[in-house]
Every structure is written in structure tokens, then in C-alpha cells.
Amino acid sequence: MLKIDLNCDMGEGFGVYRAGSDEELMKHITSANIACGFHAGDAATIRETVRLALKQGVAIGAHPGLPDLAGFGRRAMSISPKEAYDMTVYQLGAVSAFAVSEGGRVAHVKPHGALYTMAARDKALAEALAEAVYKVDPRLMLFGLSGSELIRAGEAAGLRTINEVFADRAYEADGSLSPRGAEGAVITDPDRAASQALSMIKHGVVLTRQKNELPLKADSVCVHGDTPGAVVHVIRLRERLEAEGIRVRKAGDHSD
């Protein structure tokens, strides 16, 4: 039986600002990537999101990003591997402390936005992130873009890696995600997003914007919480997966 994890980026509000439909989304996913306070999130939001995840039996993940609140962490910054290491340890520590204080633990780490994209291509940056995760807790799983430098760095560091694919994002011929400003980069049709996910899970291929088939491995599928109609996307995706006999379960769960 095919198995797949469904993950979503969460806890991305801060102060009086709220983003996404975390409470509803949490009912349909298996892993939550919780913003750590740099690109979004704050102490109260982290605590609330951790509690939501524990209530629904969803795996808790840290979602470290660049220190760019105004740009939501989606603007590339020039940072050294040492800076990447330090900011990853710092942010992972924040979510981990809240998880432990609520009776849980962080299961995985998934970099956010521009940091994720940069680490997918930059070997030194990827190695710094992987080292940070391993030194905090070698049991943690590292999520990265399928087949990317981050996956290779995680494997070399001795971490369990999770090849991530995206239901609601278009791909380029080189395996990278299409830039958000490009036409068709964000897939807003829930049926089309579900079909793309099924192709990656069942057949290991995705049709790129350049109309060629790109091979990849799918361990976890991401649906962004800020995609228009995100709740509908997740519900439709789970329905399609279950109809195809694909079991939705947390990353790292080997039970039948």
C-alpha cells in the first residue's frame, strides 16, 4: 500500500494578525510546520499551534525562516552558513521548548520560503542547516525539496530525510519550484492540485511548466496554508488519495 504524509505550514500569524485557517486545516493533515518567529509567528502563536497539533494527533515540526517579517521570509538574503546554522538552532529551540512544555516533541524541521529555496541549491548552506538539526537532535527528520542539496546534506549528516513535493506549486525543468511571480506558479484549482499530487505519489513524475516530465520522489506532500481555498485543497486531496487506496500517515510512521 502506498503511504504519504500531508504537511502544511502553520502558525504564521503574529500579534493581533492571523493567517490561514489553522484550526480547520489541522483536522486534515498529518504534519504541521510551525513558524518560529523570524518570518512569522510569535510566542503565543507557537504555543497555540503546538496545542492544536497535539489535540489532533498531528506531528509537530519547526519551520525556521529568514529574519524578514515584512517580506514573510520569501525574499532571498545573503547569509553565511554560520548564520544559517545559528538561526536554525535558535528557532528550532523555540518550538521545541513549547512542544516539550505541552507534553510533546518536535518530530521534524522544514525550512521556510527563501531559506528553503536557497538550501535546495546551495550545498554549503544545506550542510549548515543539516548540521544544526543533527546537533540539536539526531532523531529529527529533515524535510527538503525532493532530490535537492538539502536532502543530500541531511543524508550525509545522518538524518532521516523526507523528500517533499508540492500539490499547489508548479515546477521548473530543473526541479525547482516556479518563482511565485511566474504565471501559473501557484495552483489554485483544488482538483488540478490533487491530480498533480497523485502523479507524483503514484508515478514519481510531475509535469513542469515547460511541459516535460520530471522524475522525483514523494515522501510528503505540502499544501500551503495561505493558498486561496487551502482547506478545500486539503479535503479534496485527502478524498482523492483515499479513493486511490493511498494511506495518509505521519512521516516516519512505518505501521501498516
Rank of each mutant, 00 (worst) to 15 (best):
L6S: 06
D9N: 09
M10D: 12
M10V: 12
M10I: 07
G13W: 12
G13A: 08
G13H: 12
G13I: 09
F14S: 13
G15E: 14
Y17H: 14
R18S: 14
A19V: 15
S21V: 06
D22M: 02
E24M: 10
K27A: 14
T30A: 08
T30I: 09
S31W: 03
N33W: 04
I34W: 08
F38P: 01
A40N: 05
A40Q: 04
A43L: 14
A43R: 13
T45G: 09
I46C: 15
R47K: 15
V50A: 09
V50Q: 07
R51T: 00
R51Y: 07
L54F: 12
Q56A: 15
G57I: 14
G57Q: 11
V58L: 12
V58P: 06
H63G: 07
P64M: 05
G71L: 07
R74H: 02
R75S: 10
A76E: 15
M77I: 03
S78D: 14
S80A: 00
S80W: 05
S80F: 05
A84R: 04
Y85N: 06
Y90M: 09
G93W: 11
V95D: 03
V95I: 15
S96N: 14
A99W: 03
V100M: 04
G103D: 13
V106F: 11
V109D: 04
P111S: 10
P111L: 11
L115W: 06
A119E: 03
D122G: 06
K123W: 00
L125M: 15
A126L: 11
A128L: 08
R139F: 09
L140C: 06
M141Y: 13
L142R: 02
F143I: 03
S146I: 03
G147Y: 09
E149Y: 08
L150Y: 10
I151Q: 04
E155G: 12
A156F: 12
G158T: 10
G158L: 08
T161L: 14
T161R: 07
I162M: 09
F166I: 01
F166A: 01
A167Y: 04
D168Y: 08
R169W: 07
R169D: 07
R169L: 09
A173F: 01
D174G: 10
G175N: 12
G175V: 10
G175L: 06
S176W: 10
S178P: 04
S178L: 12
P179R: 11
G181N: 13
G181E: 13
E183A: 13
E183G: 10
G184M: 05
G184P: 05
R192E: 14
A193G: 08
Q196P: 02
S199N: 14
S199H: 04
M200G: 02
I201G: 05
I201V: 15
H203D: 15
T208L: 06
T208K: 06
R209Y: 00
K211A: 06
K211D: 07
K217E: 07
A218R: 00
V223K: 00
H224Q: 03
G225V: 01
G225Q: 01
V231L: 15
R236C: 05
R238H: 12
I246V: 15
R247P: 08
R247T: 06
R249M: 05
A251H: 02
